[in-house]
């Protein structure tokens, strides 16, 4: 699924509700859009920061959880991962793994 389809789906699905749907419930797309700034559009990194697109969801979610707990030492990701719940990380991982 491309970012465009996922985001469109996210928008339309979220939009059906009368109250704002939380970012976590809208799937990973809305949070993942925020990761693209460092990881590249659709997670397809053009730099040395790892690409996220098409990676196994478990790999991505575990990496984020390990950054959050400190089990894995990164540079900036330890600080960023602390901003998300496990559920949000799973959704973001699912989202990026679906981009081929």
């Amino acid at each position: 699924m491309t970012t465009r389809k996922v985001l469109a789906a996210m928008a339309i699905a979220g939009l059906a509700a009368s109250q704002p749907v939380s970012a976590a419930d809208a799937g990973g797309a809305i949070i993942a859009a925020q990761c693209n700034g460092c990881h590249g559009f659709e997670g397809a990194s053009k730099g040395v920061v790892p690409a996220l697109n098409g990676k196994p969801a478990l790999l991505l979610s575990q990496a984020m959880k390990d950054f959050k707990s400190g089990a894995r030492k990164g540079t900036i990701m330890n600080r960023i991962a602390k901003g998300y719940t496990d559920g949000e990380m799973d959704n973001v991982a699912q989202y990026y793994s679906g981009i081929k």
Partner: peptide, 16 residues
């Protein structure tokens, strides 16, 4: 969302 007559999704932001 608004152009489609729907409610916006609650946002999330990052600064790096």
């Amino acid at each position: 969302a608004l152009l489609n007559g729907k409610s916006p999704v609650a946002p999330s932001w990052v600064n790096t």
